[in-house]
Amino acid sequence: MAGYPGVPASPTTDSTHVPRWGMVIDLQKCVGCDSCTVACKVENRTPPGVNYNVVVEQEIGTYPNVRRVNIPRPCMQCDTPPCVTVCPVNATYKGDDGVVVIDSDRCIGCRYCITACPYGARSFDFGESYADEMQGADELQAPEWGIERGTRGGVWSSPVGTVRKCTFCAHRIPRGEEPACCETCIGDARYFGDLNDPDSLVSKLAADPRAFRLKEEVGTNPSVYYLR
């Protein structure tokens, strides 16, 4: 079954099927508009300094023989996640559906996992707020991991002082919705689906010769593929 309550077992008809959620990002289609980053911040109501998705702008070569590549970077949801192995209290773990999750009510905030992530995909919630720039910024928090977290700044329920990360929008998946970054992408560059289903679009794209993954040499086996 899926790693958290309420997640449907599979898009296929087989009720014993366990999905492994994955993402494919077509770099030929990405224009570097950062819409995915904005959509993510809105959807997950992440505070300043906490970014689940960023677009890395790589500059390859030296002028004038130079080209730029935009690499959108969500959490890679690694199959062998190095962030999980180092957590001293098992607060972060990989769900059966392949999504690496954090138990915000157990995380002690040691930030060991942030140092261990080869992709810089984890953020620490320092307790900063957009309240000065946006009315009602602290009135509501995203129901991360399917748990209502009330207003920001609550002593016990709030994730302030813990580590946060991209969840593939775990609260949207049970509703049959794709992650906010995929939905908003203006060039349709991001695909989301079940890598355990060989007929799914993401499985087929991940098998494409154009497909590669970031830092394959580290042996993390990410669930996010790129098409070069």
């Binding site: 192995t85 180092v86 001293p88 209290v89 098992n90 157990r106 002690i108 060991y112």
Partner: peptide, 12 residues
């Protein structure tokens, strides 16, 4: 709680 929960792969 670090004493209550043990994770053997974590040196910490």
């Amino acid at each position: 709680i670090t004493l209550a929960y043990f994770h053997w792969t974590s040196p910490l």
